[in-house]
């Protein structure tokens, strides 16, 4: 079935994508609309004012205590505006100090402000190729932070990250949104892992971000795929043969090793060259598992313990 093929092929996606979508990751809470606490605040202030003018108490004791309490209010500034769904760090209403106090519910107040740096990059895994590739890194920093740098964990290299909306150069989308960006050329010529973190100065102290790793990986070329298929075909053919099925388990192990050695020495009729690394063929005595490496170094396993299936 075609759809099943898509589902099965999806199994081969990279580790980071699987982990990113894992159901046991922290759940994202629904962002409560900002107008609700605003409206509540406006009503409360109006009611208090009216209460003061007219000399009435419009609230019972607990409500009054809540409204008057410092705990019941939260200051919405550019620093934490995003948390309240304002986006872009803008304020709902500002006085001269660019601050406004808004009444909010206990639940909304408990949402933790994001004060740590959060570093991410556009591509965590890149296929190896000739030359270099510019990769965009973004870091969300607290408001007022300065000196934002991307630091290479291996070589300690420092690249300045900017919040200048100069997309072509720094990769930054919007100026003043607290998201700093930089473009870094990643060398694709050799498979490797590059780890980075971001650092900035805020309120006299230095903050560091989470680590982000960019992996440059190599994929098989057509001849490698063809060699792997040829080995798999030969192994499958052997294992499906009636003669092989009739053998005892020890004989099967011995026969499979013979075939692998033959593939290592001479290959097959269609691919008359070494298809398996001879020194890699090993047999586990305890559970009848043969491991070996294809000519390109990829490990494969023949499991003869229970079912004669091929795991690679």
């Amino acid at each position: 079935m075609k759809q099943m093929r898509i589902l099965k092929t999806l199994n081969g996606i990279s580790d980071d994508l699987i982990e990113e979508a894992s159901p046991d990751n922290p759940k994202k809470k629904a962002v409560k609309p900002i107008w609700k606490p605003c409206l509540a605040a406006a009503c409360a202030i109006a009611a208090l004012t009216a209460g003061g003018v007219l000399g009435y108490k419009n609230f019972d004791r607990s409500e009054e205590a809540f409204i008057k309490s410092d705990e019941a209010s939260v200051t919405v500034t550019a620093e934490n505006a995003k948390e309240y769904g304002l986006g872009g760090g803008g304020n709902i209403a500002t006085d001269q100090k660019e601050k406004t106090t808004v009444m909010t519910t206990e639940a909304t107040r408990q949402q933790k402000p994001v004060y740590d740096i959060s570093l991410s990059c556009a591509e965590n895994e890149i296929k190896a190729a000739e030359g270099k590739k510019p990769v965009r890194f973004t870091a969300e920093v607290p408001a007022g932070a300065s000196g934002v740098f991307l630091i290479g964990s291996e070589d300690g290299s420092r690249t300045e990250m900017l919040d200048d909306a100069d997309n072509a150069v720094s990769g930054d989308d919007m100026q003043g949104d607290g998201v700093f960006s930089c473009m870094l050329d990643i060398d694709l010529s050799v498979p490797a892992e590059y780890t980075f973190c971001a650092e900035c100065t805020s309120g006299g102290s230095t903050l560091r971000s989470n680590e982000v790793t960019v992996t440059v990986y190599k994929t098989f070329d057509k001849s490698e795929v063809s060699d792997i298929k040829e080995v798999n075909r030969a192994v499958s053919e052997l294992m499906k043969s009636e003669g092989f099925k009739a053998l005892s388990r020890e004989e099967k192990v011995s026969r499979a090793c013979e075939l692998l050695n033959e593939l290592a020495d001479n290959g097959t009729e269609d691919a008359p060259h070494s298809l398996v690394r001879k020194d890699s063929i090993t047999v586990s005595d305890s559970n009848y598992v043969i491991t070996y490496r294809y000519s390109n170094g990829v490990i494969a396993v023949i499991d003869l313990s229970e079912k004669n299936d091929l795991i690679s």
């Binding site: 580790d15 980071d16 699987i18 982990e19 894992s22 598992v289 396993v301």
Partner: peptide, 16 residues
């Protein structure tokens, strides 16, 4: 049966 020889980069993704 597969570990070793396989040494997964991410055990979570591998077992998944």
């Amino acid at each position: 049966k597969t570990i070793p020889p396989v040494k997964p980069h991410s055990l979570k993704a591998y077992i998944g």
